[in-house]
């Protein structure tokens, strides 16, 4: 393989990894705070993409307005999901919450099929995102450059919020010890709402960027990325934002490189994530950047 081809694959892998990272952050934040696998996260991502699609095609908004609208509405949607499906069960056994999450995911998917229709839709791509560059034999579409840059900008914002604001401090406190945080006067419900809002906003961002890269929308499009990004979060160490980003990139690059280096395994591309999951769970269950916790009796 020539160096050009390799670089080409790296570019593809990095933009896919960025998308995975954006989604994985949502999982890791929710899990860090509620110890809940938000199965509906992939479907929230799908909703974000569809909102942007309809804003552009049915309401003729310019792409930037449509994207902004998608981020805001999806954040609200995510908060609603938490209110309706997770909050009533907060003190129930874990198994009930998980079933509720799976139920919510299927409900959103099936509602998506009913409301949006099962037929694939083509995501409109503004010309800004379709410019073609050529760097020494490596061809790039501008969206492949924009995805990592946008991801990094939003990540920097997120890290600032989590590490340097009062809300961020409260979020860290809740994820460390739910009960103690409540005793210290933190309004846990507000923090959880905020977390779901941010997670869903990033999912919507991932969604619109996904739409620009893979412009075919179907109501079930969130299923596989959703599962894979949860895996990315586990691989990186669940609860850690840095870990989610690292996990996302490992997964994105790994998938692309497996297909590139071992073409005979192309059919097994989707299995890569799951194999990675099993390996990491057996070798280092706390993930690459997670803290090991001991169970107290």
């Amino acid at each position: 393989m020539s160096i050009q081809t390799f670089m080409q694959h790296m570019v593809n892998g990095i933009s896919l990894g960025s998308l995975y990272a954006l989604l994985a952050i949502g999982y890791t934040m929710v899990y860090g705070i509620l110890r809940l696998i938000n199965f509906a996260h992939g479907d929230i991502f799908m909703i974000g993409t569809y909102i942007a699609f309809y804003a552009m095609t049915a309401f003729f908004l310019p792409w930037w307005a449509a994207f902004a609208l998608a981020l805001v509405l999806t954040a609200i949607f995510g908060i609603l999901v938490e209110r309706l499906a997770y909050r009533p069960l907060r003190n129930s056994p874990r198994i009930s919450i998980m079933i509720s999450a799976i139920g919510a995911s299927f409900l959103i998917e099936n509602l998506g099929i009913v409301v949006f229709g099962g037929r694939p839709k083509a995501f409109p791509i503004a010309p800004v995102f379709a410019k073609i560059f050529n760097f020494g034999g490596v061809t790039m579409v501008s969206v492949q450059l924009i995805i990592p840059v946008v991801t990094l900008v939003f990540l920097a914002m997120l890290v600032y919020i989590v590490n340097h604001t009062k809300t961020g401090m409260a979020m860290r406190a809740v994820s460390k010890d739910y009960e103690a945080a409540r005793l210290m006067g933190i309004d846990v419900d507000v923090i959880i709402t905020f977390t779901f809002g941010i997670g869903s906003l990033l999912a919507a961002l991932g969604g619109v960027l996904w739409g620009l890269k893979y412009p075919q929308l179907i109501p079930l499009m969130g299923m596989m990325p959703g599962l894979k990004c949860f895996i990315a979060a586990v691989v990186g160490g669940i609860g850690s934002i840095k870990g989610a980003v690292v996990g996302g990139f490992i997964l994105g690059l790994g998938e692309i490189l497996i297909v590139a280096l071992l073409p005979s395994l192309t059919g097994f591309r989707d299995a890569f994530a799951f194999v990675l999951l099993i390996v990491i769970l057996l070798v280092k269950p706390s993930g690459l950047m997670g803290k090991t916790t001991t169970e107290k009796v």
């Binding site: 696998i37 895996i231 989707d270 999951l277 099993i278």
Partner: peptide, 12 residues
């Protein structure tokens, strides 16, 4: 949680 996601993974 991990068991759920791992078995789901194996099923896939």
């Amino acid at each position: 949680d991990y068991l759920a996601i791992a078995t789901l993974g194996f099923g896939e």
